[in-house]
């Protein structure tokens, strides 16, 4: 193995750990809340803090299909091959979910995105608490990220 490959492997391991850590932190954060109103308030607060996209970025090409509310993703890879994600929705709770996805996946390497399933969704009980269509929306979002990460 060359030094270059060693560095790449180390980078990838660190990247994966960071993604897993972000998921664990989310789960820990939510453990503080006793009832659903607090949990949703926290999701809504994260949504409010999410930077908005420009109007000219909220176009059909950036729409994620399979979401009942409107969700737009602007995805770019930087020189290192990390996926830079900017995204928003017209629904506040969905924006909060996007903010959580960003904490896990934004700026990560392709392999990390491909190999890190969004376990936090179930761990937070969002699977049960969010309506099925919205859950499909979340899954559609993750699929969109994975597809973008896999593309050159």
């Amino acid at each position: 193995m060359t030094a270059h490959n060693d560095t790449a492997a180390a980078n990838l391991a660190e990247d994966r750990d960071a993604a897993q850590r972000a998921q664990s932190e989310l789960v820990e954060e939510f453990a503080f809340f006793d009832d659903w109103t607090e949990r949703y308030r926290h999701i809504i607060d994260m949504g409010k803090a999410l930077p908005e996209l420009e109007d000219n970025e909220k176009i059909d090409d950036n729409l994620v299909r399979g979401c009942q509310s409107q969700v737009w993703f602007v995805l770019e890879k930087d020189a290192e091959g990390r996926l830079m994600i900017r995204a928003t929705s017209d629904a506040m709770i969905v924006k909060g979910l996007i903010a959580m996805l960003l904490r896990v996946y934004n700026g990560r390497l392709s392999q990390t995105i491909a190999n890190t399933p969004p376990d936090f969704i179930e761990a937070l009980g969002l699977q049960a608490h969010l309506s099925p269509t919205r859950n499909n929306g979340l899954l559609s979002m993750v699929k969109r990220l994975q597809a973008a990460a896999a593309a050159d």
């Binding site: 809504i44 009942q68 509310s69 629904a91 969905v94 309506s131 919205r134």
Partner: peptide, 21 residues
């Protein structure tokens, strides 16, 4: 200032079923 999907999610937590969409 409130999206129908956010409303229906919160309403569901309150036992209220409405249509949103």
């Amino acid at each position: 200032d409130m999206h129908a999907h956010d409303l229906s999610t919160i309403l569901d937590q309150f036992g209220v079923a409405v249509r949103a969409g």
